[in-house]
C-alpha cells in the first residue's frame, strides 16, 4: 500500500495519478455519508470517512485493520487535519484525533509514505 498525506489542495490526488499510475475512474472518493469501497485501487478523502465514523460511533482504524486484505495493494490518501489549533467543537476534536490515529496506523502499514506540499512530494518512508 502506498499512503499519501498532506494538507488540503496540496496535490495528493495528482500524486496518486502521476506517481502511482492511478486513473481518475479508479478513485473511490469518500464523503461524510460513510460509503467506502476498501478494495478500490485508490481511496481518497479518507478523512471524510473518518468524520462519518466519528458521528456514527465507529472506529476507523479498526475498520481499516479488519479490511486490510482489500486495500493492502492500493493507494490511500488522507488529508492531515491534525496540525492546527485544537478545535472548539467536540466533534471536530474527535475527528482530528481519529484522523491522526488512523494516519499513524496506515503509515506504519504502508510500503511508502509521501507527503505533499505545494504540489511537491516528500518521501517520508
Amino acid at each position: 500500500m502506498h499512503f499519501i498525506i498532506g494538507g488540503a489542495y496540496q496535490g495528493k490526488r495528482d500524486c496518486a495519478k502521476s506517481r502511482f499510475g492511478i486513473k481518475e475512474e479508479e478513485i473511490m472518493t469518500c464523503t461524510e455519508d460513510g460509503e467506502i469501497r476498501f478494495d478500490a485501487p485508490c481511496i481518497d478523502r479518507i478523512e471524510e470517512f473518518v468524520l462519518w465514523c466519528v458521528r456514527n460511533g465507529e472506529d476507523p482504524s479498526e475498520l481499516f485493520r479488519r479490511n486490510r486484505e482489500k486495500w493492502k495493494d492500493s493507494v490511500l490518501i488522507c488529508r492531515d487535519l491534525f496540525c492546527g489549533v485544537v478545535p472548539m467543537g467536540a466533534e471536530m476534536r474527535a475527528w482530528r484525533e481519529a484522523a491522526g490515529r488512523l494516519c499513524a496506523c496506515l503509515a506504519s502499514e504502508a510500503e511508502t509514505v509521501t507527503r505533499m506540499f505545494c504540489g511537491l512530494e516528500t518521501r517520508l518512508k
Partner: peptide
Amino acid sequence: YIYSDAERYDSFTETYRKNLASLDRALAS
C-alpha cells in the same frame, strides 16, 4: 500554510483556501 487543520469552513473561506493553494502550487512549480 493554512491547510492542515480540522475545521469545516464556510464556502467563502474554503474558496479562499483553495485559491491560495492554487497560487502556492503555481509559484512552487
